[in-house]
Design a protein around this nucleic acid. Structure first.
Lengths: 188, 188
DNA sequence: TCGTACCCTTACGTTAACGTTAGATTCAAC
DNA sequence: GTTGAATCTAACGTTAACGTAAGGGTACGA
């Protein structure tokens, strides 16, 4: 009887070996091993020699893992979710637990969105600030004096990201010009 | 002459030892050492015995590091930015490089926002799906059959996150009931 | 001066998600 | 049967951002 990715003339669909699964999903054998260790995926069976054999559904499964991992779910979190799902059929408490997992992750995700959006606006403001230098004066002189220029570019105050960068400059500036005690140059 | 966090009766403000800086910023001494290694922060000087002494500005600096680190900037990325800022005074190319760093990070951040927002909507949909179970039937029977129930909760299709969880169940189900070859139970 | 908190440098440990390597076994085509 | 690709398990390595510990030196108030 042929067991390797061959059509079995009965009701059992063709099974995949791990390498097939890896190629079909763009993952490595190692990654699939890891998912199995974490309980996220199981082979349908094994050969008598110990080779893992997977059903076609495993392809979807690995893709699902990759999709949500890419969106921000750690493998551990997914593991919790999967286990909570399996347990949810056992009673109301388990179901409540599953829902609370969803709620917590949803809240965490909303917070992450806010943080990223905040950073986005900081970066956009900083970039505008830097672009403004190129606009407001002749290129040669602007580029030369831009980083150290004192004008506020039409803004009341430099964006926080740029302000922090600016504060780095004077700190380094005086240290180069006026050493206080031991001039720290070993960091180079 | 007193050098430890004492007012020097001249134009030099009181300097902080590393422990002071750590307490004022909520960071550890170790973290501050790391920032120094990465070139993000430097002590203003050292005692003859080697103790680091920081200016008040270092407090703002460490806070800035923490703020943007918390928003999604890796320390390495911040290092690149700081160095690009320092170099930007050297000419138009360096200035252009600084701007491109901003642009790239801005693009990455926008992508991160999109990913998180996508996950957020998936989680919200999944939660609605799960909440609908509690709504559509009596608690006792709903909780019992919820995970495996076949009705679509008024939705054409389960959200992708839930669909992936559902697909985990039948895979585990048959394996418990109808082992094909070697039943894999060692993952327990 | 003494005592104690503080600081120094060095170095190894932790975590998540794999990557990489090695030696042995299995599988399937020829 | 032979051969070479594929797979097995085991184990160590990588990265970022620190945490932890150790042994020795420093700073400063009492």
């Amino acid at each position: 009887m042929t067991t390797n990715a061959t059509q079995i003339p009965s009701q059992t669909p063709r099974l995949l070996r791990i390498g097939d699964l890896a190629r079909l999903t763009g993952k490595t054998v190692r990654a699939i091993h890891l998912y199995e260790e974490l309980g996220l995926l199981q082979p349908a069976s094994r050969t008598s020699g110990g080779f893992r054999l997977y059903e076609q559904g495993a392809v979807e499964r690995v893709r699902w893992i990759g999709l949500f991992h890419g969106m921000g779910f750690s493998l551990q979190e997914m593991r919790e979710l999967v286990h909570a799902w399996w347990d949810a059929g056992l009673g109301p408490e388990a179901m409540s637990h599953l829902r609370s997992l969803f709620k917590r992750k949803l809240e965490d995700t909303r917070e992450a969105v806010r943080r990223s959006q905040h950073l986005e606006s900081e970066l956009a403001a900083g970039l505008s600030y830097l672009e403004a230098c190129r606009v407001c004066a002749a290129p040669a002189s602007t580029a030369k004096g831009c980083v150290g220029c004192q004008q506020d570019h039409g803004m009341e105050q430099a964006p926080a990201l740029v302000a922090g960068l600016k504060s780095a400059s004077p700190g380094r500036g005086p240290r180069r010009s006026h050493p206080v005690f031991v001039s720290v140059e070993e960091i180079q």
